[in-house]
Computed example of a mutant assay.
Amino acid sequence: MKQVKFGQTDLDVPSIILGCMRIISSNDPVRVIESVVENGITFFDHADIYGQGECETIFGSALKETAIKREELFIQSKCGIVPGEMFDFSKRHIIEAVEGSLKRLQTDYLDSLLLHRPDTLFDPAEVAEAFDLLEQQGKVRYFGVSNQNPGQIELLKKYVKQPLVANQLQFGIKHTEMIDSGFHVNMNDTFATNRDGGVLEYSRLNDMTIQAWSPYQYGHFEGVFIDHEKFPELNQKLHQLADKYETTPTGIASAWILTHPANMQVIVGTMNLQRLKEIAHASQIKLSRKDWYQIYLAAGNVLP
């Protein structure tokens, strides 16, 4: 399993994260946890809203049925979304959300807590108070954000004393907005539009780990692009390179992200044990520069 440095910490963490949103659909969550750990995936990503909390409950109960020690795992959760109503980064909400996650996960602490979606009404001083309290109580070890741009992160950093170690952002072969504008600097085509404030470069400059979510999706949760009839050229290339690197198209799609020198992590949500094993093994693959760019172009992107 390829390891990456986790933000500004001295921790080396797995480059593959198991996203637990779909654990609610698993027939055997105990085996899922055991299997991924056997394959080097010891980093688990949660959110208090996944399954309205049920995903954390299932994970916590399943982990208790294994022989795996809590300290062998890195457990992360997110908070700040009140589904269908609002985003909430208030001190009270953050603290109550963490307390709820800890109870459902049956653990005394989170390795990291991310603020899920930007709350435009947030008071950064309140967030700082919440972070300080949770850190002092030993309930959260590291802090980060999700789906935030550099300006939003800088505003938060002005008040919080803890390093912001990670940012979850959607990135993958069919979601390349984070790199498109960098290729098309000083041009007036659609690809030149900078939609995120240069978050990729910002993350690298500030040693924030990018965690790529929904890496195999296309469109707005329209489906998985791998082996989809809508993308014949891309899938032809994925299969060709899968043969070359002795892996699967899913493995190549994962390696495409991990080959980037930003040292990202990939969040995978499948509960299919064979696919998880393939992804874990593919984490060691580093694509050649030519192969990386061929995939980018086969996905329908253009270079100036």
Rank of each mutant, 00 (worst) to 15 (best):
Y159W: 12
L121I: 00
P163N: 03
E96T: 13
P150N: 12
E129T: 02
Y159S: 10
V145E: 08
L134V: 07
K158C: 09
F89S: 10
L121S: 12
L164M: 03
Q137W: 01
D88V: 14
I153N: 05
T120I: 13
N147A: 13
D119L: 06
E126M: 02
G100R: 11
L121H: 13
L134N: 07
H116Q: 06
S112R: 04
T120D: 14
N167M: 06
E135V: 09
A97K: 07
N167E: 00
F122W: 11
I153S: 07
F171G: 14
F89W: 15
R117M: 09
E129R: 10
L115I: 01
K161N: 12
V98D: 15
L102S: 08
K157I: 05
V165H: 03
L133I: 12
E154P: 00
L105D: 09
K103L: 03
T107Y: 01
F131W: 12
Y142V: 00
F89N: 05
R141I: 01
D108Q: 04
E154Y: 08
L110C: 08
R92P: 04
A97F: 00
E129H: 08
P163S: 01
S112Q: 09
D119E: 10
V127G: 13
F131D: 06
Y159K: 12
N147G: 04
L105R: 03
L164K: 03
I173G: 05
